[in-house]
Structure formats: C-alpha cells, structure tokens
Design a protein around this nucleic acid. Structure first.
Length: 852
RNA sequence: GCCCCCAUAGCCCAACCGGCAGAGGCAGACGACUUAAAAUCGUCGCAGUCUGGGUUCGAAUCCCAGUGGGGGCACCA
C-alpha cells in the first residue's frame, strides 16, 4: 500500500489530524467503502437519509452537526452487518441562486454548479459516509423531467388544478408563497418581507383531499418521530369537527351555510357575521340601502388596507358594519341581523359564521362593541373555564357574576343546555350530536369537518425551477404536455431578464413560450411559471434508488427493496413544510400504485441547532462560527466528535459550552493507545487482563443500545471511560503487550469510526489491519465477561442507606436478607424499633421498614 | 387563549422497570515530568435533583399545583 511509508509507528510519532486526513481521503476514494451498487448483496438493508442540502457555497456548522449525527447512524448499521444506503444530493433549484445570478449578471446554473463542486469537496473532507455514485441534482433536466411527470400524474387525477384566489405575495422576491412559507408574524420565511395578499390565478396541489390521512397516519409514526413534529403537523392540519348550518336569508333565494363547532348553541345565535372580503358580503351589501353600500365600501377599503400583521393582532378592537340584511335561524325562526366584520376569514369554512356571543369570546367581544344581544344557552357548571370567581363573599352563586354580558367572558366550558327547546337539559356533547340529527332530519344542516390546512400553492413567478408542463390554448384550454415530450427544458438565460417583476421571466422567452397546440397545431403558450422547489424534495428519496434511470422516475422494484426510509435525519425547520409535502406525495404515489407504503420516513431524528453564546448564529449578531476555521484548528474528527458528544442530538449545542480542544485531546489519547500496542494482530484476548476485558465487553454490550436510542453523547462518554481504563492498564502492570489491551484498542478504533473516522482508520492501521475499519463487523460481547464477580448491595432502614454489602450477584433473597440483618450498622439503625416489613431485591437492595 | 416539551455540581450533561444522585467532558485547584513552559500523566466532587404537596418501604424518575425557560397553533367559528 503506497501510503505505508508515512505510517510506521516510529518512536515519538505524534497525533496530527492534518496528516491523517490527507492520508486517508484518497484511500477511501479508491475503496469506495460505502457504495451500494452490488445487486447480489444479500445483507439486510437499511436506508439512512440525511436531508439533502441547498448548495449555498460551503458547509456551515448546522450541516456539520446534521451530517455528523446521520453518519453515526449509517456507520453503525454497517458495522451491524447491514447493507446501508446513505445517499446524498443537491436541492439545487431555488431563489438564492437566481438572486445571486441577478446580482452578478450571470447564469444561475454556473453559480449553482460551482457551489456544488465546492461543497462536495468539503463534504468529502468531512468524511460523511455517502454513496457518491447516487449523487443527484434537482436542477438537472434528468431530475426535473420527473417532477413534470409527477405533476402530470397529479393533473390526471385532478390533484393539480388552477384557481383564482387570494394568495400570499412576497413583494421582495416578487413571487407567490405557500401558506407554509409565511411565518406566524406575516413575513416571508425566505426574504423576510411582509407578505401581502394578491388575487391571482395559480396552480395548486390538492393536499386538502389528503388532510384526514395526513392527520390520522401520524399515529403510525408515534414513538418514531419527535413528539414535537407530530404535534406541529397536527396543529397545522387543524381538523375541527362540527356542522354546517343553512340559514335562509331574507330577500335571497339561496340559503347561506355557516360552519360551527358548536351546533348545540344554535338557539343562542343572535346575529350573523360574514367576512368583508368574501363575495357574499359584497352581494348582501349590494342588495341593501345606498347608505349601507357606502358604509360597506368604506369598511372594505379600510380592511384591505390593513396588513396581514395588523389583522392578526389578537387584541385589536373589533370592527364591522351592519349590512341591513337578516338571516333566519333555522331552529327557531328568529331574525338575525347580518354584519360584515374582519374577524371572520373569507377562506375558512364558508366565510360566514353564526355568532353566539354567550359562548364564543370573539362573538362576545363583537356583541359588546356593537350593543348586540347576548343569550346564554349552556348553563356552565361551577367556576367558568377562565377561573374567574363566580361566587360572592357568602359563597352563594351569583347569576349576574357569570353573565357574559356583564363579565365580558364567554362561557365555553361544559354544562347543560337551557333556553334551547328540546335540547334543554342535555350535556354539551349530547346536545351537539342531537342538534346535528335534528338539522339533518329537517334538511337545514349536516355534520361537517373543516381544516386549517389549505391547498398547496405550487406556482412560482421565477426562473430557476421546474417549468410547469402545461400549454394554454388560445381558447383558454389547458393541454398537458405529452409525457413523451418531457422534459420541458428551461430556456437558456441569454436575452432573458431574470429580475423579479411580478410575472415569470419565462414569459419573455418568446421562442420558448410560443408553441403550437399539441392537439390541433393552433398557436398556444407554455405555462410560464415554475414549481415550488418543495415539489423537488417531496419525492427525492425515491430518486436515489436509481438516480440515472431515464425511463422512469424511480423503479418500483427498488422501492420495494429499500423504501421507505428507515431513518431520516434533519433539522426541525422542516417539521411542517417539507415533511408534510413528502408525506402527501408519498400517499399520492401509493394511490397511483407505484409504491406499497404510505409514509416515506419510518423514523425521524431532528438534530438541534448550533448556537453561539446562547443565540442562533447570524451576521447581524456577529456570532458566526466558521466551520472551515474549526476544521482547520481542531480537525474534522474533533469537530464531528464534539457534535456527537455535546449532548442529546435533539438539543441545541451552544458552541461556547463545548470543547473541540477537549475532543482533540481525547482523540490523541485514543490514538496513542493504538500506537503503544505491541502485541501482534490476532493475539488471543482470552490470555489478557481480565479486568480490562470486562470493561471492554461491558462497553460492547451497552454501546449498541445506546446508539440505537440516539444517546451518542453517552456512547462517547463510555468510550472515554474505556480509553481511560486502557491507558491505566498500559501504564500499570498490565503493559502494552497484553492481549486485552489490543482488544480494547481495536474496539476503540471500531467505535471511533462512528464519530471520528480518520483517527479510527489510522488507529486500525497502527493495530496492523487493512482499511477500511468501516467495513469491520461489530464485535459481540462475551456473556461470560459480563457477569460481575461481586456487587454492592444496599441496605436501607426506613428509606435511609445504613450499610453496603459486597455479595455474589447470584445471591438468594433469603441469604441477602440474613446478611443485612446481621449487619451491625443495620441493627444499630433499627435499635428498639419493631421491623414491620422487609423488601429484598437481590442482589442490589434490602429495605427494612420499622415502627416504634 | 389552546396545546406540547424541559429544569440534576460553576458550565455541558449521565443515572435501565421507581432502588447507592455521578459515567464522561469543560472550567478550576494541587502534584509529577521539565532549567522553564507547552504537551502528557496523576489526584481532587457535601449539588441532594426548580418550588410546594401527594403516592410508595423507597421518588431526579409517577401524580397534582405552581415558578422559570423553550416551542407549536391562534380572531380557524
């Protein structure tokens, strides 16, 4: 082997990370130890996937953490005898490339692929155990062709459609955004701009058709996905169950439906509210007096002027206008005034609500602001849910004290119905069910479910993405591009102005846009929008299975072999967006018969963030830690080890709290042990020191469980312990020639491969073995060495430890109790008191309970 | 407002099914080696587990209430 000349363990040779990094990188490049291309490989399979990166220029600390942790898992399963698929690729479409290209007047392709080259180099240096043969780029036509194919399958199924609607518009990036890309404060997650509403015709994926399955199937991920992510997804989908109730409108032929989760309170409805920006509001106003029309117009202008952020402030005053119209309550025939108010949202439910001020806080706030009546129909029991005291000083319940019209607090709690005809006396739950029955019998309502989730808006008015494979005929018809004409290639950027201007830059590529209608040859135009890049990542895990197949998106047979992903690793930032979309597309592909599973990622590990001085790293805070600098200073292995050792993977790491220097010291310490070993490879460990062997095998027995529970920090701590014990053995009487020392050193190298592969490989060579240590099977612990010679039993008297006994691990309960009672310290503790109970848990514990 | 998670030594963190609170690291102190320093090696841990209740022979661990911190959703009817 050509590298051997610089590895002979000369006396005094010292650990130098730069040297061993340089030494092993080319060796691994030749060996390709992580390739998974052999079709005859009969080992069981594991698919370990790290979320693929956007090629932003170089790796940063966040990548370093994610890939270090994902690599522990991938390397671990290889040692356990699995054929591990651990691919990597590039999420290489998207705005940063396009914005950078505009800024510099260059092509986004060049920028993107240059970045990929650079970042790839860094990844190889970082020694993540990827199968580089499966590398993919979503910006390659070979990839995005299949995005277009997917779009067409969805189009055929009616799952891709165009509609005219109010959309989120990012005024900086000049494109629409999905709901999921708008932060809670109303700004764009991408540009930070305040998002405005715009009415546009856009393409959507009908994710709402899958809302129930996306929600219910989360159950099968319980325990395998972080609870936090599951709850975020549940919140996001936001299913609420209730009823649609039809209200007749005076002077209108059609009734208006409203959605309510509280049909039991229908008798308490005292007015109706419609969203001012809903078509219904305009229509109702138009049928009213000129004064009302004028007031409504003023109000509408005022509402539309307010930003999303202002609108979402929950503590703002209620506003609204009376529309001069009336609805008829279907259960009691009462006339309910109809108001327009912006606390009702146009795009949820039917854009109208029945207002029950006594039992809904928002309705109550509105009623009190405008002097509308409040009628209690549920007698809530005891203090209400807000905890307000409704009893007076004498402890007597005071009806006025709980009257919402007086207290301003709506009664949302449990209780029994009153003032509600035949519902009187029923509990809230029973009344809801009964009211739905009644409505259904009378044909004025029905059970209904609503979701917070909206359809996924996928069109983007930007260049650097997948063209939408639709052609628009002159007559307005939509013609899908025939599959044999895919891919629809992006036109070259020459002559195109990529600057955002509100419409897609592709529209200006005349030669590209104008095409004959595939059906009759008449003039037609290509759809000029591109797809949201989250479409790309929604199925990339399948493309890794055969990334170079130009006949299909993925091979269903390969999918049966490898998919779903056994272990997915990535940041919690994608808890909703990417993971929800990927789950959705997986279910669609299942329904289309391409795959046999309904969830893409069987298990998910979210690593925390890397912070500096308690805060996320940012330019403005000036607390950015450069990965490249850390690698230069401490080496790849020390940085990787620090990531694993810092704490539980899902916790944030504050770089100020951890010590890559300490990691480097430990690695040097471990490495010196391998250097110091003087026994020959293959020395029989049975002849070695028994105490050290016990430590080694205890470690071998415990480490797998710890890795599988993601307690990487504990594995490292245990490894440090083993190294300490080995060092002690070498420096004490046992000495460097002992076979147990070799065994411990080999186990150390083997384990260190999970965290610090360069050091591990170098140790492995010092120990007289060939690369790659990554391919060496895990050693199984010898059960005989796990039996302890003696254990310490604790004797408690009334809960306090009074004595400790060294006993055989196999001691019988009775013998242990006898020994415990014989202890002088114990007898002293019992004294004159009477023993009432003795609990024995041999061999660890005796608990004696006494009384006076 | 609704829902979820967390709290152990100066700091980062361990502690299996409820059974001796301490594995590991950082920082610190002292010592060995050295002319000296670095590196290396060694030695050093009385915090009783955020607070208050409860269950139990026994609670960091389970239950209830609270405090502090973090997160998700939020005028979603």
């Amino acid at each position: 082997m050509e590298h051997e000349h610089d590895t002979s363990a000369a006396e005094g040779e010292e650990y130098d990370f730069a040297t061993i990094q340089k030494k092993w990188q080319p060796v691994w490049e030749d060996l390709a130890p992580f390739a998974t291309s052999d079709p005859d490989d009969t080992r069981p399979r594991k698919y370990v996937l790290d979320m693929f990166p956007y090629p932003s220029g170089d790796l940063h600390m966040g990548h370093a953490e994610a890939y270090a942790l994902g690599d522990v898992i991938a390397r671990y399963w290889r040692h356990q005898g699995f054929n591990v698929l651990h691919p990597i690729g590039w999420d290489s479409f998207g705005l940063p490339a396009e914005n950078a290209a505009i800024k510099r007047g260059i092509d986004p392709r060049g920028w993107t692929y240059d970045n990929i080259e650079q970042q790839k180099k860094s990844m190889k240096l970082y020694a993540a155990s990827f199968d580089w043969d499966r590398e993919l780029h979503t910006s390659d036509p070979e990839y995005y062709k299949w995005n277009q194919w997917l779009f067409l399958q969805m189009y055929k199924k009616g799952l891709a459609y165009r509609k005219d609607s109010w959309v989120n518009w990012d005024p900086v990036d000049q494109t629409v955004l999905a709901n999921e890309q708008v932060l809670p404060d109303g700004t764009s997650e991408r540009s930070g701009a305040v998002v405005v509403k715009k009415k546009l015709t856009q393409w959507y994926f009908k994710i709402t058709d899958y809302a129930d399955r996306l929600l219910d199937d989360l159950q099968q991920l319980e325990g395998h996905w972080p609870a936090k992510v599951l709850s975020m997804q549940r919140n996001w989908i936001g299913r609420s169950q209730g009823a649609d109730v039809d209200f007749a409108i005076e002077g209108r032929d059609e009734p208006v439906s409203v959605f309510t989760t509280r049909p039991d309170t229908l008798h308490g409805a005292t007015f109706m509210v419609v969203a001012p920006d809903a078509d219904l509001a305009a229509e109702l106003a138009a049928g009213s007096t000129p004064e009302v029309q004028a007031a409504f117009q003023d109000y509408l202008v005022q509402v539309q002027k307010s930003t999303e952020m202002e609108r979402q402030a929950t503590d703002r005053e209620k506003t609204g206008v009376f529309l001069g119209r009336y609805a008829i309550n279907p259960v009691n025939g009462e006339r309910l005034p109809i108001w327009a108010a912006d606390y009702v949202l146009a795009d949820y439910g039917h854009g109208a609500v029945m207002a029950v001020p006594a039992h809904d806080q928002r309705d109550l706030d509105f009623a009190l602001a405008f002097g509308l009546p409040v009628r209690v129909v549920v007698e809530t029991t005891g203090p209400d849910t807000t905890g307000a005291d409704t009893t007076d000083a004498a402890g007597e319940a005071d009806p006025a004290a709980s009257d919402p019209a007086v207290t301003g607090v709506a009664l949302a709690g449990e209780g029994r119905l009153v003032n509600s005809g035949e519902l009187d006396g029923l509990t809230k739950g029973d009344a809801i069910a009964r009211m739905i029955e009644l409505l259904e019998q009378r044909g004025t309502g029905r059970a209904a479910t609503n979701y917070r989730l909206r359809d996924w808006l996928i069109s983007r008015q930007r260049y650097w993405g997948t063209p939408i494979p639709i052609i628009h005929g002159e007559d307005g018809s939509e013609i899908p591009v025939p599959e044999d004409q895919l891919p629809v290639l992006l036109p070259p950027t020459e002559g195109l102005d990529l600057k955002p201007k509100g419409t897609s830059p592709l529209g200006a590529a005349t030669d590209w846009v104008n095409v004959p209608n595939p059906i009759d040859g008449t003039p037609a135009r290509r759809d000029a929008d591109t797809m949201d890049t989250f479409v790309d990542s929604s199925w990339y895990y399948l493309r890794f299975l055969n990334p170079n197949d130009d006949t299909q998106a993925f091979d269903p047979a390969e999918a049966r072999r490898w998919a779903p992903v056994d272990q997915y690793v990535g940041g919690v930032t994608h808890a909703i967006l990417h993971l929800l979309y990927a789950r959705f597309i997986t279910k669609v592909l299942y329904d289309l018969g391409y795959i046999t599973f309904i969830e893409p990622f069987t298990a998910l590990l979210n690593q925390g963030m890397v912070l500096m001085d308690g805060a996320a790293m940012s330019k403005s805070k000036g607390n950015i830690v450069q990965l490249s600098q850390q690698l230069e200073e401490h080496g790849v292995d020390a940085v990787r080890l620090t990531m694993a050792f810092a704490g539980p993977p899902e916790d944030d790491i504050d770089w100020a709290d951890v010590s890559p220097v300490g990691s480097a010291k430990f690695l040097a310490r471990a490495w010196r042990i391998a250097r110091d070993v003087t026994s020959a490879p293959g020395a029989d460990p049975a002849t070695g020191d028994q105490a050290l062997r016990r430590a080694t095998h205890r470690f071998l027995a415990d480490a797998p469980g710890l890795v599988e529970a993601f307690k990487f920090n504990v594995v490292v701590a245990r490894l440090m312990e083993l190294v300490n014990a080995t060092r002690k053995a070498i420096d004490s009487g046992v000495g460097p020639a002992d076979a147990a020392v070799r065994e411990a050193a080999e186990v150390t190298a083997l384990t260190l491969n999970l965290f610090s592969p360069y050091t591990a490989e170098d140790m492995w060579q010092h120990l007289g073995h060939e690369p790659a240590v990554a391919l060496v099977p895990w050693r199984t612990a010898d059960p005989a060495l796990l039996v302890e010679e003696s254990v310490t039993a604790v004797v408690q008297v009334d809960g306090k430890v009074r004595d400790r006994l060294e006993v055989a691990p196999t001691i019988a309960d009775a013998d242990l109790e006898e020994q415990a009672r014989a202890s002088a310290a114990v007898t002293r503790a019992i004294g004159e008191r009477q023993v009432v109970k003795v609990i024995v848990r041999a061999p660890r514990l005796v608990s004696i309970v006494t009384k006076p």
